[in-house]
Design a protein around this nucleic acid. Structure first.
Lengths: 340, 340
DNA sequence: TTGTAGGCGTTATCAT
DNA sequence: ATGATAACGCCTACAA
């Protein structure tokens, strides 16, 4: 058991002053080569490492980033997190993570907790409840205090800050057009309740594609599923009661559930009904047939978000750079659940 | 833009001393009700919150826990992490996370980085490379410095610390016996290279079950797959060249891959071949048929690990409590990929 | 009832 | 070339 050693310890042992030790270890040329060597050898032997906390206090920066995501079990957030972690680490930052669990209160409490000195900035994707309540005072307050925030994916226009989002609308249009090219004309959409900005955008993209191609919108072909429930029955009804030859799903769970129902009903994927889902996760890769999906490039989003944040934090006080929004281009990965 | 306010600021504004402010905010009865009220009102108005960093420095404890896991995309680690986060937060701790990415170096570097004051203790699952190298000096050093560590899942006997593991061997035996009860007698095992303690234990459990039931071991029925590669061909060969009526897989990816191959080859699951996988993740739930799996109760493991760590950290210096190993009982979730 | 002083570990500035 | 001092924000034993 050898507790951590401090500058003071070294100073005492070597009978010099603390500041001499500090300077010597920083290779200051104020100190004679002789003492420098002595001190360095001693420090090395006892494996001296400066105390991060003391440095944080002195420098008024922690080199920690707070990441707040709604959920860590979802593949998309997981990949974004990876990207953040990767870039942050490469820049010497640690990542403190909080799961809001889609709860407004948890989001607020966790952020306030971290904001009291533990982190230099936040990367955040809004919880469902926050988007539903449409209440962003906690974010405004943090920004007011000078703590930078980067929003990704689940963002809001009501907060002025750097953002990283997907071209949800555009890629949805592209997906639907992929159906149309293959001859589909009874195209369905399976989505979530619409307080999510992303679901909303995806729906817009879907509608846009229909419009651009002179097709009429049939509201019956839009299925809005409630959150966190077993939706199998709803989905089954949906496919029984409607004539459908293609379906766009806003996440991969819906996609794989639809596929399962469709096959159960005796249809063939993709010949009778084609499917495209969002999120190129593990489900999409291991289903049969493999799912055509919208790859959201989560890792790229994460890296970009981290870069935005660190750039802003390190541009010491020349902070008033205008806020940027980076749009990450999703791509369609064509696999077995669509024709072509 | 209103920067954070400090005790000093309050003291200056209210023309009292810093310690008076400090005491007042802690409701010390040394201070007159009058000044307390004045100070509290002011503090509340300016939304004073003590600076965590200063507290950490003073108290020599950060209330941060470092979590090091090999991978965040794997469902199992994700759920364990959830459990850790949940318990830690409820006890007022933050969680700093590092992904070792199965790399020894990343594991070492990250841990050393955090160990310099950023965290009070670690929860860790060993990286593949660390287990392969069998080198744990970094952990020993940290323990030497008085930093507590809790290992989970991927553990080693070479380190004396609290541990949380699964009854891998027992549950594997149980799984194989489930096959046997249903009439199987050509039971295969699909596993990873054996430097993982968990794979090793699962194999032992498999062998034990065969032995207990008077069945002979056929080495041909044990398929060892390399890490991170497309194994489809190996798996296909395996099922073509061997007569098999049941297969136990050490993770759910292998399980779902096997199922896919089996169905491709024209067999029926579970009638021709039954399957059981480890990890009750999303793949198992959304495959068809749904997979019978070993639920590892990751969240429980995480909570338990966090409890071990926090207990030890908070039992100030009466530390020499003996190290405990908690064995979490996995359970078999019977679904469509097995008979019964 | 209030204030002073010292310390947590480090660095920067200003002596000596 | 080396050391003393102050400061980061907070707490607390001890004075006043």
């Amino acid at each position: 058991m050898k507790p951590k050693i401090t500058l003071k310890d070294i100073a005492r042992e070597l009978d010099v002053s603390i500041s001499t030790v500090s300077k010597a270890l920083k290779n200051s040329k104020e100190i004679s080569k002789d003492t420098k060597d002595r001190i360095k050898a001693f420090a090395k032997f006892y494996n001296y490492r400066p105390n991060n906390i003391a440095l944080s206090l002195k420098n008024r920066r922690t080199k920690n980033i707070g990441v707040v995501i709604p959920d860590i079990v979802h593949h998309f957030f997981t990949t974004v997190f990876r990207g953040i972690e990767k870039y942050a680490n490469s820049m010497g930052y640690n990542v403190i993570i909080c799961i809001s669990d889609e709860s407004f209160d948890k989001e607020v409490i966790n952020m306030e907790m971290l904001a009291n000195g533990s982190i230099d900035g936040f990367i955040l994707s809004l919880s469902a409840e926050t988007q539903r309540k449409n209440d962003y005072t906690h974010l405004k307050e943090l920004l007011d205090q000078g703590i930078p925030i980067v929003l990704f994916d689940r963002v809001t226009e009501q907060i002025a800050c750097d953002k990283v989002v997907l071209n949800d609308k555009g890629i949805s249009t592209e997906a639907v057009e992929h159906f149309i090219t293959a001859g589909a004309n009874k195209i369905a959409l399976v989505t979530t309740e619409n307080f999510f900005n992303v679901s909303e955008s995806r729906k817009e993209g879907y509608l846009q594609a229909l419009k651009d191609n002179g097709m009429t919108v049939n509201q019956d072909l839009i299925l809005t599923l409630p959150h966190s429930l077993d939706n199998t029955n709803l989905i089954t009804e949906f496919f029984q009661q409607n004539e459908i030859d293609a379906v766009l799903c806003v996440n991969e769970i819906f996609a794989v559930q639809c596929m399962s129902v469709i096959q159960q009903l005796g249809y063939n994927v993709p010949n009778d009904i084609s499917i495209i889902g969002f999120t190129d996760g593990i489900l999409s890769k291991y289903s049969s047939p493999k799912l055509t999906t919208v790859a959201q490039h989560g890792e790229t989003m994460g890296e970009k978000a981290a870069k935005f944040l660190i750039d802003r934090m390190e541009s010491l006080e020349m902070e008033e750079a205008p806020f940027k929004t980076e749009i990450i281009n999703a791509t369609l990965i064509k696999r077995g659940s669509t024709i072509n």
